Amino acid sequence: MGIRAAVVVCVTSFLLGSLFTHWIADSLTLWKSPTTDQNIWTAATYYSIIANGPAQIQYAVAAIVLLGVTTILWSLRDGRAGNLMFDGGSIFLFCTTIWMYSYSVLPYIFNLFKHLPPHPSTDAVPQELRSAIFDLASNNLICSVALTGVLGLQAGRFWAESADDDDEIESLKATPAPSRPKTPQLE
């Protein structure tokens, strides 16, 4: 596996880990039935903490995303058939994740949760906030599945390249070594 593929796998794994931390909030809304107001307030509080977190964390994540996109595009530029297929699919899924997160997740987090009013967990949740939390959980799940697809495509690329290398080694073994011309011996 080349250095570029290793960087893509590491960046994608980091971003998946970042998305998995949202499980604290998302599990309370997507995977619990019935979803109580207390669960939704807990998720809202979690997203409020993220919205009010240090900006340096957001810059670091943005830099990591940029590293991932740059690396995939660099690998795609090689023009080899394997790169076009596997890296083309990877860039599509990676960019889909970036687009979804930029236009469907971050605006909700920073617009609705930046100034979340104090509340007891027994208060009824406003419908706008309830819808936003369910949308956030769904979008986080979609982004996680897309990034898992990137890892799958990179694993497929590794497997295809290693199979090509194995075929090349087998063909070299099957080819007889060129014979040396016999030199006349002096008697």
Score class of each variant (00 low, 15 high):
72 I>H: 01
178 P>N: 12
153 L>G: 02
184 P>A: 13
161 E>L: 15
29 T>H: 06
16 L>P: 01
141 L>A: 13
137 A>R: 00
125 V>M: 02
140 N>C: 01
37 D>N: 08
127 Q>V: 10
65 V>N: 09
98 I>M: 10
111 N>P: 04
144 S>A: 08
97 T>R: 05
105 V>D: 03
164 D>V: 15
68 G>T: 03
70 T>K: 10
14 F>T: 03
167 D>C: 08
63 A>D: 13
24 I>M: 11
51 A>P: 00
32 K>F: 08
181 P>V: 05
14 F>V: 09
60 A>K: 07
69 V>N: 08
25 A>R: 01
79 G>M: 01
117 P>W: 04
82 G>F: 02
46 Y>G: 01
20 F>Y: 11
145 V>N: 07
118 P>W: 03
172 L>N: 06
128 E>G: 08
33 S>F: 07
54 P>A: 14
55 A>I: 10
153 L>Q: 03
40 I>N: 00
21 T>Y: 09
35 T>L: 07
118 P>H: 10
31 W>I: 12
31 W>V: 11
62 A>T: 12
166 D>P: 00
101 Y>W: 12
165 D>Y: 10
82 G>T: 06
10 C>R: 08
105 V>R: 00
141 L>Y: 11
87 D>I: 00
70 T>D: 15
145 V>Y: 09
133 I>V: 14
98 I>Q: 06
135 D>C: 07
53 G>L: 02
166 D>A: 12
118 P>Q: 09
140 N>K: 02
89 G>A: 12
